[in-house]
């Protein structure tokens, strides 16, 4: 069964007269890592907020585990099953310390205190923040704050985690930490991951890529055969990771890899 399904999904902001999302029909499967790429304003964040009922469709529907996000009774369940990590680490840290921030979601869900203590222990070890549980947000790096957010969501035992450009405000170290965490979440713990990103090298780590353009999903490709995809990606003006640029360039000029090597290293 698809874990999330979009049916003729449309979205339009009240103040605007154009649809931001235009008739999407897609399924996201259990355990896969899907990345969504696309220019600024193509509707990625809007779409991500529809995955767990933070916004409601103005046309069509979103189904999570077979339940419509518009059903009032399912909404708490859906919010628990589909966790969201946002872009700005500072703006999603709500509590005075890391420990309290991890507990925030569980408190809302009415989890008993003893269970909370156990889970905080468990998830903080899982994302490697057990040594900073007592710290206040202004003493943490961006990556540490994002990992606290991930821990807080993990504590609710979700099946899906959505990352909306969660690495874009981090330094290279923080980015690496979060990417590694995402990788483990998907490959070790079997969570379904949806990651929105500007970086193709991040998208290439996933199983499938949606390319969004002006409210539509223009392409839906697997990452099994990246070399075949490079052409349109480049045509869309996406900066390819360095090794692929090199590969494309060499291919265009019909330079053989061995020749390239002699060119660089000399005879």
């Amino acid at each position: 069964m698809a874990i999330i399904e979009l049916r003729d999904l449309e979205y339009q902001y009240e103040e605007s007269d154009e649809k931001v999302l235009k008739g999407l029909n897609k399924k996201i499967h259990q355990g896969e890592w899907l990345s969504i790429i696309g220019a600024n304003g193509s509707g990625k964040s809007t779409l991500s907020r529809l995955f767990n009922g933070l916004s409601q469709p103005t046309g069509g529907s979103v189904l999570v585990l077979g339940k419509k996000t518009t059903e009032e009774d399912s909404l708490q369940m859906i919010r628990r099953e589909v966790g969201m990590v946002f872009q700005n680490p500072e703006h999603q840290f709500v509590a005075p310390t890391v420990r309290d921030d991890i507990a925030f979601g569980m408190e809302n869900a009415g989890v008993p205190r003893e269970v909370m203590l156990e889970r905080i222990d468990e998830v903080s070890r899982w994302v490697n923040i057990e040594h900073i549980l007592h710290m206040e947000p202004h003493r943490l790096s961006g990556g540490q704050k994002q990992r606290a957010a991930i821990a807080g969501i993990l504590a609710l035992r979700p099946q899906v985690m959505v990352f909306d450009e969660s690495t874009s405000m981090l330094d290279p170290n923080g980015r690496k930490e979060i990417l590694e965490t995402m990788n483990r979440l998907c490959r070790e713990s079997g969570l379904t991951i949806i990651s929105i990103t500007h970086y193709l090298e991040e998208a290439f780590m996933s199983d499938r890529i949606w390319f969004m353009k002006a409210g539509r999903i223009e392409k839906d490709v697997t990452t099994a055969n990246i070399p075949d995809q490079l052409e349109w990606m480049e045509a869309e003006g996406m900066p390819l990771p360095y090794k692929y640029q090199l590969y494309r360039e060499a291919k265009k000029r019909r330079i053989d890899i061995r020749t390239l090597r002699t060119m660089v290293e000399g005879e």
Binding site: R49, Q76, G105, M106, E107, N108
Partner: peptide, 27 residues
């Protein structure tokens, strides 16, 4: 204002729904 909007989304996404039925970590 930007922050307030982000924060509202972040809190709602983690199931914040007012005080009813809430438990507390701090004793």
């Amino acid at each position: 204002f930007r922050r307030a909007e982000d924060l509202a989304y972040a809190m709602e996404a983690r199931g914040y729904n007012g005080g009813e039925g809430r438990t507390k970590l701090r004793l």
